[in-house]
Structures are given as C-alpha cells and as structure tokens.
Design a protein around this nucleic acid. Structure first.
Lengths: 197, 197, 197, 197
DNA sequence: ACGTAAGCGAGACGGTACGTCGCGTCTTACC
DNA sequence: GGTAAGACGCGACGTACCGTCTCGCTTACGT
C-alpha cells in the first residue's frame, strides 16, 4: 500500500473505506483529469456508496487533499535534524535528493500531480517546501547587498520553479538519472550540464 | 484594450458579444477560481444570454482558451526576425525581456494565469515557448558531450520552470525590477543576485 | 395540387411560397406527428427562409389551419342548394356522400387528420358540419316528445361521431366500399350490416 | 381522491410525489390545453422539483399516460365476469352503463379528455374498449353473410364513435340523463329518442 | 460472547449547472 | 433601400452531479 496508514486505531471498516476510495481516485486519475472525475465515479469504482463517501469527506477535493498532505508530511518528516548548511555541487543538500527519491518511489502519484496538467495545489506545496529549504542554499548567502532579502526570496522561487520543472521532466522521461545526480544538477546546472556523466 | 481584435470584418454584434464575454470572464476570474465560475455567471455579468454564449463557444474553457491563444500569439508574433544567438548576461535575448514586458502590460491577465492556482494550460504554453527559445541560450551551447541532446532539453525545462516561477514571484511582488533586469537575472542568476542594483 | 388555390389575384411569389410551405407541411406530416414538426423543418424542406415563413404565418398552427379551412370550405361550398329533406336508406342525403367522396379525393390529407392521433380541431370542424347537416335526418324528425330539441341535438352528435369514426375506419382500410354505400350504412347501420353487399 | 392508488407498498414519499404531480397536472389542464403546459408549470404547482419529476416520469406525456391507464384499467377491471350476451334496448350491456358511470364519477378528468380538443390517445383507448365490447352487441350477431367479419368490425367502429361522441355531448351538457338511459339510447338510438323520458 | 453503537447501503429529494432546441424578433450586411 | 441571412433573447428541455435526509441492516467493538 502506498499511503502511510494513520497509526490511530480507527474502525476497521473506516480504514477499509478510506483505502478503497483513495485507490479508486488514483485509478480514475490515471484515466482522466481530476476536474472530470465525479464523486459518483469514485464511489462506483470503490464499490462504496456515495452516501458513505460524504460521511468521510466533504468533497472529492478533500479526499485528494488528504492524500497530498500525507505525501508532503512524509517529505518533511525528517527535516528537523538538518546539518549545518555548507553544501557544494558534489554534496547537495539531502532535501533535494530526498525529493527526487520520494518522487521516484511514488512516481505514479507524482506524475499525476506534477506532469501534464498536474495539480496546482500540490505543486504549490512542493514549491513552498523547496523554496523554504533553498533559503539555506550556499550560493545565495555570500551576497551582502541592500536587496539581499529580496534577492534571496527571489532566488528561492527561481530554484523552486526550476526544481519542480526538472522533476516533471525527469518523471516524464522515466527518470534517466539518479536522484543524487538531479540534486547535483540543481545545485549547479551549467557545470553539470557541460560535464554530464 | 486588452485583447487584439481580429482583423477580420465580422458582424458588429458578434464582436460586441465576444468582447463582453471576455471582459466578464476576466472580472469573474478576479473574484474566484476558474473552476468555480459557471457559464451562467459569465453571461449574467456580460448581459449576454446563456444560449448566445453557446452559439459562440463550446465551453467556458473555449472562451478562456481563445484569450490565452491570443496572448501567446502576440508573444510569438515578432519571433521570426531573431538576431544571431550570441547573448550575455548583460545582453539577454529579447524573448525573455519581451515575456516580462508583455506580462507587465497585461499584468491582470498574467497574474490570474500564473500566480496563485493559475492556469496549468497557459503555464504550459508559456513554458513551451520559453523552452523552445531557451534552446538558443549560450550557456547550453559549448557542451559537446554524448548526452548533449538530453542535457539541452533538460536544461531548457530547467530554465523554463525557473523563468515562469520567477515571473509569478515578480507579478506577486508588483514588479519590483525592470523586465530587462529580470531577463538578466534569468541569464545569470547568481551573478545578478550578488550585484543587484 | 391538392389545395384549391385562392381565386384572389395575389402576388405570384406569395402564392409560390404558400404552396411550397403547404406541401412541405404535408410531407412532414406524413413522417411524424404535427407536434414534433418544427417551423424549421417545414422551411428547410420548402426551401423557404424561416424569416419568410413568419412573414406569412404566425405559427405552424396557422399554416395548418389555413389548409383545414380550405378543405372544410370546399365541403360546404354547394351546401346552399339543398333539396327538401326526405331521404331514405337507399337515397341518403348528398352531404354524407360528398363527405366520403371528398375524403377519398384528398385521402392523404384526411388520413392524417382523421386517423391515428389525427387532428382534434379538424375533426371538430367536420363533426360540426355533420351534426348540422344531420339535423335534417329523417329518423330524428317524427318524434314529437317534450325533449325533442335535446333529443335531436343528442342524436346529431350520435350520428356525427359515428360518421367520423366510420370515416376513419374506411380510410384506414383503404376504402373497401363506395362513398354511396357508406352513406347508406350511416343512414341505416343495422339493416345495411345484415344485408352487406 | 380521483386516482386509484396502487396497492403496492411503495415509499410514502414516492406516493406523495406522484399524487402531487397528478393533481397539479389536472389543475393545469383545467386552465389550458396540454400542449401548452410545461413540466416546469406542473412542478411549480405541485411544489416538486423539476429534477424530481424526471426521476419519476420521462415526460409530461408519461405522467398523463399513467393517469389515463389507471382510468382505463379501472374500466376494464370487472370485465371478466361477463354474463352471456343477450341484451335488449331495455337491458343494455353493463359495459355501456359503466362507461357513463365512471365518466360521471370522474367527470373532471373525462371532460378534459373527451370534450373540447380532448386527448386523442385517451379517446383511442376508450374507443378500443367500446369497440371490443360492442362485438357482443346483439344487432351485429344475426348476420351470416360473407362480409360478416368486415361488417362487424365496421359496426364496432360505428358504435364506438357514436358512444364517445355521445359521451362528450353528455358531459358538455352536465349529464342530463342517467347512465342507464344513455346506454339504452346507445342500443337503440331511434326508438329511445322518440320515447325519451 | 454478545449486545450495542457505528458504519454502511439504499434511494428520495431539492438544488445548480449543463448543453441543446425551437421560437419569434430585430439588426445588419450586402446586392 | 429593401431583403435574406442570421444574431439574439427567451423559455423549456432532459441530464449529470451535488449534498442532505431518512430508514433499515450488518458488522465490528468493547466490556
């Protein structure tokens, strides 16, 4: 099963219903864009009555969001124990690596969220995560000019957008490089590009 | 006037209807996300009957798409007359500059499409435009390694993602820098950041 | 041509338009019930612009009514010169005969109006005609009881309903008897039935 | 209550909805012809949502038909227990009497269906009923000629048309005679007419 | 283990929006 | 300058989903 089950000791039937609905949503998403999927579709596939759906979620959006949140939570799980920030292109920060690793692990979900039309909300969450993390990026630090704060924030968005776009490309092309390599490229795109493996 | 009127000599009433509908859509979009806007809403605001809407467009999507297409077409309009590709950070390619210029000119529309949830389709079109243009980027050219093609394509996505993310940030912050400055940053993010004006 | 053209000296184009529309309506009526025929259908078939239709008729109903009225007028045309009322089963009044004769002549129209769902308005007109005429029927006359007036009117309705129903049956069965024979039957149903040809 | 409720034990809400819709249709029919009544009109009056209407009936036609069918079914309900056919003008078959009795009982409905424009489909059903029943009519039996079958069928239509037309007249004139009297007249129009009470 | 509280299926219902069709009017471009 | 072409407003249609609501059944839980 691809989604971390909540440790809480909920009713077995409830857990089953949640699981069925989530899997049904994923299956539907593999076939058509989220906007075209109806609660009825999900329930039909999950073999769960529509009424039951509404006993657990407000919306199809709520169902999706629960899944996204779990995914993002997993990304941020170990974040607290971060080592002091001094990374190079050869030793990229583990955040970057972990992002590509998790995307590889849950590639079905990530492809749906990040490639094609994708899901703006999820992309936004990921971007925020990257941008926050990228604030520790070494290249942004040495500057000491008046617009430093602005520049740093701008640069964070630059990196976040690039990282996400790269992730989409990487998934679309069946992950031709290792997560580490992608993180290195992200740290130093031009060098890496000109000395590609 | 925000949308280039078609040069064709169509019925006056038709042109009026199109204009009213487009302006109504923009006004609605300023208030709530596209998904929540109904054809009825648009028509009510445009003071155009709903059936008349359907005589011109299949969908609210079709209406939006027409507007997007016009915007992208405008972006690509002068593209043919491209000077030989030899750009530096100080002399960024005019494509980049023009993107930010147009976004500034139509900032209302661009904010709606690029910031917040935005519109995935439009972002995709813009990205494609940037990626195609970025293939001429000087930094990607000197490499002559086996994975050159892959690297170039990957880099194009890197740049496109970064440029778009930057654009969103720029618009969200009320365009604190000039379009030229943004294009320069895009060409050389680290240098520019550390020597910001 | 099945409908008597108005003797008035109207514009040729107008007469042509009326003719085309009427023929188109008849053709449509042969295919589906009146209620399902649209003005657009009629105009398409008549190769007359819809706007033009509305310049001549308010409705499809108006078009049909014009046709019906002409038919009824034709029925009543010679009515004035009626001989004194003294008819027997062998010599039925000419009204009855003429009804079946005209129905035979315009059988297409009459079938549409009288058989199947038919057209209530036309049937009503025909019934009124028969009822009025049947007041002269010999069998109703000898009575001299208090309720005479009521009885006569009731009997007229009796005969009218029977005549119309018989007409429908006759047309539905491809007119197996002569109009005269039908009129005779109408005058004396039981005798005729038991001594059928 | 004018319509025999189905004995089946259906959901209370369903029965309520059916009842409300039927009553609303009857009320509308009293005001304007069926063709001019919209589903929206019916629903508004019944205080039932239009979508709910469509969950029960395909059409306004379907709603009307259900009512008609129930009425006809009621007419034919006791038909099986028919006594041997030997009726005279004084002792008309109970079928005829029952028709007028039921029409009197449901006069509102019958007037709508049979008088004025009326409803062709209902009249057709009633006619079929009468024609079938009229086959037992004594006057048609003694004949033994080659065209007997044709003559019998023709006569059945004769009687059916007359009976229906008479019914319309009777209702239009507020039922001036008893159902029995009407049935007697139907059996022997001339005799009865000349000795009316 | 077993009674009970919950989760669940079933489906009627009001409600919003959809996209389509036909009507009758009114405007406009064109000849 | 008159007319056909057709844009338009309008009302109704039939459908799809939505979210809410009862009402019984059955199933897992906790004591």
């Amino acid at each position: 099963m691809s989604i971390k089950t909540p440790p809480e000791h909920t009713d077995l039937r409830v857990r089953r219903t949640h699981k069925l609905l989530w899997e049904a949503l994923m299956a539907e998403l593999a076939e058509r864009p989220f906007a075209e999927i109806s609660v009825t579709d999900i329930c039909d596939r999950a073999m769960v009555h529509r009424t039951t759906f509404y006993k657990h979620y407000d919306d199809k959006y709520a169902l999706l969001e629960q899944g996204m949140r779990r995914m993002i939570d997993a990304l941020m799980a170990d974040e607290e124990h971060l080592p002091p920030s001094a990374f190079s292109a050869d030793h990229p920060p583990p955040y970057f690596v972990r992002l590509y690793e998790q995307a590889a692990h849950h590639r079905q979900f990530y492809k749906l969220m990040v490639c094609g039309e994708g899901n703006a909300q999820f992309q936004r969450l990921v971007k925020e995560y990257i941008a926050r993390v990228a604030a520790d990026h070494p290249r942004a630090s040495p500057t000491a000019k008046p617009h430093l704060a602005v520049a740093a924030e701008m640069h964070a968005h630059y990196v976040a957008g690039a990282a996400l776009s790269l992730l989409a490309w990487w998934l679309d092309h069946d992950m031709p490089f290792s997560p580490l390599r992608m993180a290195q490229y992200l740290m130093s795109p031009h060098d890496t590009a000109s000395s590609s493996r």
